[in-house]
Every structure is written in structure tokens, then in C-alpha cells.
Amino acid sequence: MSLEVIRSTPFIQLQDGGRFGVRHLGVTQSGALDWVSLYWANWLLGNPLAAAVLEIPLGGLELHCQQDATLALAGADLGATLDGQPLAPWRSFRVRQGQQLKFAQPRQGARAYLAAPGGFEAPQVLGSCASVAREELGGLQGNGAPIAAGDQLRWSGQAEALREVPTSLVPVFGASPRLELVMGAQHSDFSGQSLFDVFNSAWKIDLRADRMGVRLLGPVLQCQRTTMVSEGIPLGAVQVPPDGQPIILLNDRQTIGGYPRLGALTPLAVARLAQCLPGETLQLRPMLQASAQDAHRALLGQWQAR
């Protein structure tokens, strides 16, 4: 079973749940930025939740269906159409041989996730097929290259009956989201005014945003620490460089860093950030680590219960 890529962009990649246990080698995590939408896309087909999917930022993708099949779509509404007919996310759907599947541009959210039965096939590199262009790892050829015109997207699984994500569980990609931040690392080195500003300001997402990190524009944060030894950085880490504008580090981040950190976004907040476009605003709110862990377990339970 396969899809032929007719048109693509340099941002469209094959991603799965990520690459773990290799950061001591200097290899980053990678994987789907919006892991919640990844899980739902795979759940719709009865796949392992971390199976390989297409991550489609901002649209610009056109596919030719070479056989009858069942696929699934979750995440952003990118104006997807099947032979010109609107195709809504958060459900599985059937395609017929010869049909054209297109993704136009964002209507709500930034990244859509397209899944196939059993997951798209690609070589495993260090335990994952997740694409990292910078490190030339993963993807269809194992070299990190993005999806390109002429590529064949193959799978061999069989889909179950058509499914939809329950309306009550569909993530909301509304304006000005509030993202949870677990304080830690060097937060005590920031001035009291800066800590107040962090949680009482609207932060604008800079144009300098990619899979490595997202820069926020807002009040200048002041840190008393001038030097520090580089240390390991987790997903969602909020670094503050000398210009005082925080950077939220994402899946393709470097493995160590030497800027002071306020803490880290929760995994759910990272997934929500992945659906924000440059120019949008967001707010940060503090969350205790224990509360973040409880919320994460509750979220994982919604798939285990189904």
C-alpha cells in the first residue's frame, strides 16, 4: 500500500514517538512535536501510539492515492481535501485508488498528522525513524531528508473500522493559550520583577521558531548568574540568553546548553505550543511538578481506557 508525493515542502517530515536513550551520544530526541495529535492519529487506526506518521506543518502537501486504503488525520485544520471535498481532522477516512489528497494552509493550528495502518515504513536509525535534518538521521532514506515530490510512502498494516476522536477529547487550539511551566534549574537567579513578568505578561511567538526551539518576545528578563557550566536540557526547557528573551527548546534541541533556565514546559504544554503560529501570543502559568505528573498520567489514561 502506498501514497505518491506529488508536492511537498522542506518542513514536512516522517516522525514517530522519538529517539530515546542516545542523548549521551549527543543525539537529540526528535519525534512529533505535537505528540498528543500523533497518539490520536495512530489510535484512530489501532496502531501503536508512537508509530511513524507524516508531520505536516503549515500545509503545502499533495498526495496521490495508489490503492484503496484507510488513513487517519489529527492535529491542525490545514484545509485538507480529498478530490476537492473538505476533509476534517480527528477521524479516520477511506481513500480510493487515483484520488488526490491535498493540504492547503492553516485554518486552526499549525501541524497536521497523517497516519497509515501500522505506521509508515522507514528504516530504524538508533531505535527510531524520526527525522532530524541537522543530524541526517531518520526519514524515508534514513538520512533525515524531508518528504519530497516523487517519494513513495508505504505501509503494510490493515485498518480497523472507521473511528472519530470523541468531541470532548479533541484538543482546542484557541487563541492565547496558557502553557504550564514547572519551575526549576536556575529560576532563583532571576530577579523578582522578572519572575513576576514571566507569569503576568503576554508573550509573542517570534518568527525565529522551528523544531529546535521557539523564541518568545516580551519583557526583558534579568538573571544574576553570568556564567554557568553547560548541562543537559530536557524537552520544553525555557532558556534565557543574554538578551533576556526566553527560548523554549523542543524536540530537535541540542543535548546540552549553557544559558540559565527558568524550568521546563510540561509535555502537554509542549504539544500545545507546537500548534501555535509565529505572531500568536501565549501566557505562561506555574505548575508544581507533582501536579504536572498527575495531569500527564490522566492524559495517558484516556488512550489506555480505549
Rank of each mutant, 00 (worst) to 15 (best):
P278C: 11
I247T: 08
L268P: 03
A175T: 14
R285F: 03
Q289N: 11
E160S: 14
A88C: 03
C65P: 01
G59L: 08
V165H: 06
L140H: 11
T226K: 14
R211G: 09
A104N: 11
V125F: 03
A122V: 13
H64N: 07
L153D: 10
G138N: 08
L282E: 02
P234T: 10
Q152L: 13
G31S: 08
L288W: 07
A69R: 12
K204T: 12
L71P: 05
Q302V: 15
Q245L: 15
A292H: 04
L140V: 05
F196H: 15
V238Q: 09
L101V: 14
G98A: 09
T28A: 08
I12K: 04
H24F: 05
D210R: 02
L249A: 00
A50H: 01
I247V: 15
Q100V: 14
G142Q: 07
L101D: 15
L221N: 14
P117K: 00
L250E: 00
R163V: 02
A161L: 12
A290T: 12
V132L: 09
V27R: 07
V165G: 09
A133I: 08
E280A: 07
A41Y: 01
G17Q: 00
D243H: 12
D77Q: 15
Q100H: 13
F103V: 05
Q29T: 15
G144F: 05
L33E: 14
L153Q: 13
L137M: 13
F120V: 06
S230W: 10
G109T: 09
G301D: 08
Q293M: 13
A295V: 08
S37A: 15
P260S: 09
T167L: 11
S194H: 04
D16M: 00
W90N: 02
M1P: 14
T281Y: 05
G21E: 10
D197I: 05
F93C: 02
L14A: 12
A264T: 02
W35K: 03
G263Q: 02
G258Y: 11
G59Y: 06
S194E: 00
